[in-house]
């Protein structure tokens, strides 16, 4: 799906608001039911963006972390009144199990949110946001980001050729390997520095540093963005107010409360889900238009 369609058509600042809110509530609300529902909402968003492909490629490490957190927390934290059983003389408490699970679902939700962030917040959009505060920092960030793949490519080339001279990290004694590695990195760096001087010349030649910079990437803040931002603010306001009044929060320590949701919890859950799913409305709308316009073709 291309830029300018559905969710992707939203202004970077709206997206930033969406992710800032999503992350905040993913950490503030601390109730497994709310968090798992939020995770489900994030999954739906991912599914709409790319059919969940990107998420699937991350799912294994994510679920691994989820399980690990559930398992590890009870082992290292022994707070809580309700002891389930003793492992040797280590008490495993119900509270720490539930706490671990809640934390793990919070993490799962956040990571899933980040997957869609990676899809939605392209480099261009990120720069657009960043460049307002500091054009120079934005440029620096981007050049640094571009440097990594370049260095990697060059190191590969260098290692290939140096194999002919026996300078490789895969042969010889450990010290020799270390020395060879240092040589390779040294050569790589002096080569790259040499080139960086030329890059600097090229920047100066094009007037870098002659005055204030402007920024090229352009996004228009349209009515669609205004509506979305308004909706997001409203949902976030409701969710935040409820949270500030003690809803959407499961008291675990010292003694586990009931999981059942109070009215306030349900309200917080609804506001949270609305917040997460609302931008999908544009995705739906654009898809319907697309279908109705191209039906039968």
């Amino acid at each position: 799906m291309s830029e300018g369609f559905g969710l992707r058509s939203l202004h970077p600042s709206v997206l930033l608001l969406y992710y800032a809110g999503g992350i905040t509530f993913g950490m503030l609300l601390f109730h497994p039911v709310l968090l798992l529902s939020g995770w489900a909402a994030c999954l739906i968003v991912n599914g709409h963006l790319d059919g969940g492909r990107e998420w699937r490629s991350w799912s294994l490490p994510m679920l691994g972390a989820f399980v690990a957190l559930i398992l590890v927390n009870p082992l290292i934290s022994h707070r809580g009144r309700t002891v389930l059983y003793y492992m040797g003389d280590i008490p495993i408490t119900l509270e720490s199990v539930v706490y671990g699970a809640t934390m793990a679902s919070s993490l799962l939700g956040l990571l899933t949110l980040f997957v869609s962030y990676r899809i939605l917040m392209t480099e261009h959009k990120f720069l657009f946001l960043f460049a307002r505060f500091s054009p120079k920092a934005a440029l620096l960030a981007m050049m640094a980001a571009g440097m990594v793949p370049r260095l990697r490519r060059r190191l590969k080339e260098l290692m290939l050729v140096q194999k002919t001279r026996g300078i490789a990290v895969s042969e010889g004694t450990v010290t020799q390997r270390a020395r060879n590695g240092a040589r390779l990195v040294g050569a790589l760096l002096s080569w790259s520095l040499e080139d960086a001087l030329q890059t600097a010349d090229s920047m100066q030649a094009r007037g870098y540093g002659t005055g204030t910079r402007s920024s090229y990437p352009a996004f228009r803040f349209g009515p669609r963005d205004a509506w979305t931002a308004g909706g997001l603010f409203a949902a976030a306001g409701i969710a935040f107010t409820l949270w500030a009044n003690g809803h959407g929060y499961l008291t675990i320590y010292p003694r586990l409360e009931s999981f059942s949701l109070s009215k306030g919890d349900v309200g917080a859950l609804a506001a949270y889900l609305v917040f997460l799913l609302m931008p999908l409305g544009w995705e739906w709308r654009d898809r319907t238009t697309w279908r109705s316009l191209n039906f039968g073709k």
């Binding site: 261009h124 054009p135 920047m203 094009r206 007037g207 870098y208 540093g209 002659t210 005055g211 204030t212 910079r213 402007s214 920024s215 090229y216 990437p217 352009a218």
Partner: peptide, 14 residues
């Protein structure tokens, strides 16, 4: 963006 880089340095309007 590369093409725009010089113009950005000159603070040109979008």
């Amino acid at each position: 963006h590369e093409l725009a880089f010089g113009m950005e340095n000159f603070g040109l309007e979008r």
